[in-house]
């Protein structure tokens, strides 16, 4: 049976899609940010593989056909950014200033805390791209010699955490301008936070989704500098 699974190109694909569907269902039923479909799917698959003693390689031999689409999907992120370009032209200072300040804050705070925790270079560069969208963050982590899967975990914590605390943080720190709120949420917690920003309002949602790619690109450049510090 296991031999059959090893040869099957569909086992990994089917279990991935099915578990993601379950995650989507749970998300819809509960409405909780923590019921993130990616998180649910991964936990289910890992449990399944461990339970039936199936190697990751067996799963990956089929599932690799899914992540084959990652590069084209990341390339496609240019399309939603292009559609929002008029906003960027309208508020260039607030958008670039805010996002650049945010990315710099991410870099400096991660650097200082990594130093305090005594992290190795590998662990440090694993965390550096943690605020940006998974597609871009994975590439950054890989190129810098980080542990890509752990980067994805850090990105998920930032996204889900940001989604949950966004409204509270904006209230406490008196961030009331819709543009500023959207930029704050998108820069800190990428696409997973953007779903929350869209619930807050149309301007918030648009600004948040614009920040995803802009913050991603600024981070690519900044990480290559900050990676040298530890």
């Amino acid at each position: 049976m296991k031999d059959m699974l090893t040869q099957s190109a569909f086992f990994g694909v089917v279990i991935s899609l099915l578990c993601f569907e379950v995650g989507l269902f749970l998300k819809k039923k509960t409405g909780l940010a923590i019921a993130n479909p990616l998180l649910v799917a991964v936990l289910m698959i890992v449990a399944f593989l461990l339970l039936f003693d199936i190697d990751y390689e067996v799963y990956a031999s089929g599932a690799k056909y899914i992540d084959f689409f990652l590069t084209p999907a990341t390339v496609s992120l240019a399309v939603p950014l292009y559609r929002k370009l008029s906003l960027l032209k309208k508020y260039p200072k607030a958008i670039f200033g805010g996002i650049a300040a945010g990315v710099l804050t991410a870099m400096v705070s991660i650097f200082l805390m990594s130093l305090a925790f005594g992290l190795t270079h590998e662990q440090y560069v694993t965390l550096l791209p943690k605020s940006i969208t998974t597609a871009i963050g994975m590439g950054v982590s890989e190129k810098m010699g980080g542990i890509v899967t752990i980067t994805i975990v850090a990105i998920a914590i930032s996204g889900i955490g940001g989604n949950i605390i966004a409204e509270f943080v904006c209230k406490v720190f008196r961030i009331t301008e819709p543009i500023a709120r959207g930029l704050a949420i998108g820069t800190a917690s990428h696409a997973m936070g953007t779903s929350r920003a869209m619930e807050l309002g149309e301007v918030e949602g648009a600004m948040s989704s614009l920040s995803i790619v802009v913050a991603g690109i600024i981070t690519v450049v900044s990480v290559s500098v900050f990676a040298m510090f530890i």
């Binding site: 593989l49 992540d67 999907a73 597609a135 998920a156």
Partner: peptide
Amino acid sequence: IMPILFVPPTVGIM
């Protein structure tokens, strides 16, 4: 469909 594409790399956490 991008979130689905992250599933296999994340399972790599094993």
